[in-house]
Amino acid sequence: MALEAATFSIPTSSSSSSNEKVSEPQTTSKGAPQCSVTCVYQAKLADMYYIVSVTWCKNLTSHALSITVENPPQENRYTCKIDLKAWQFWGKKGLKSFEIDGTRADIFWDFRQAKFTSATEPCSDYYVALVSNEEVVLLLGDLKKDAFKRARSRPSLDEATLLHKKESVYGKKMFSTRTMVGTDHKEHEIVIENSLSGPGDPEMNIRVDGAVAVRIMNLNWRFRGNETVMVNNVPLQIFWDVHDWLFSGPGSGQGLFIFKPGKLDGESNNSNPDERNCSDGIITEFSHFLYAWKTE
């Protein structure tokens, strides 16, 4: 069974002037593909916990960051969208304030000196800070001192928790990402290489920090599966489903990869790595979902 690409939207509160929507990319014959990364956090504002979703989207014509703060039980939401286009320097530094459930919060950002690569997220020299009650409850980027100084706030004693990450990327034979392993919040580089055409059987390699961690031969028969690898003495579950790469036309389906620190209960083998089944029995909260779209 091929897995469908997930879609999601981020509606604004009623006080916003227009609705903002951010969707994971769909491969079509028209328009440029859109890469996206969404990180979902749990953060404490005042005395309540909220879900904070941070989405970076990029294609040939646009580059944007959307942040939504929501209280799911009460369905109250606020969304801030930041345009990261290079020619809009005046908008690279800003502040937006909002109120949710009677709690005031501020979002500070500074991308004036940000360094970008081909990835959707900046690699250095920027910050994005979510502030409530003079505490920085969520901080992105490496300019931490600048963020604290500008916001005139201290770090929160309740650090935001990263719950899961969803990412959509495009490529031909190679896909790369970074995922968190362990409790030190350090990210590790993962590279997926595939060879689907040629005289031999299709195969796929998954490298972690440059070393081959998983090698799948006879991919026609092992297009779904999972393995556990050790990364700095921490077990990492890797699930894959590349059915559509092999049995659908180019651009008509994605490969799904899930990276999840921890072990399966009883080390059971789950050969169907969909989001619902993969979350059963794994001793951890964080999951990284990578949707890899092959291009011609």
Rank of each mutant, 00 (worst) to 15 (best):
N194G: 01
D244M: 07
N205W: 03
V136K: 14
G210F: 06
R150F: 05
K166S: 14
Q254H: 12
K145M: 06
N220G: 15
V128E: 00
P155A: 13
K149R: 13
T228Q: 12
L219I: 08
K165Q: 10
E193T: 11
A213S: 13
V136C: 13
V136E: 10
T183W: 05
T179P: 04
V131P: 04
G251F: 00
K186H: 09
K165M: 08
G182K: 03
G141K: 00
S132A: 15
Q254G: 08
V234Q: 12
V208Q: 00
A147R: 03
L246E: 02
V212D: 13
M204A: 03
R152Y: 08
P235W: 08
R154Q: 05
N194A: 14
L246M: 10
S156T: 15
S168F: 00
V242G: 04
P199I: 09
F148Q: 02
M174R: 11
G198K: 03
N220R: 13
V234A: 01
N218M: 14
G182E: 06
V137M: 05
R207E: 12
N232T: 06
G210K: 01
V212E: 03
K172N: 13
R178P: 00
L196Q: 09
D146W: 04
V208Y: 02
S168E: 05
W221C: 14
L219V: 07
M230R: 05
P199N: 08
D244C: 09
G141W: 03
H243K: 11
D241K: 01
V128F: 05
M217I: 12
G253K: 03
N218C: 13
K145S: 14
E134F: 10
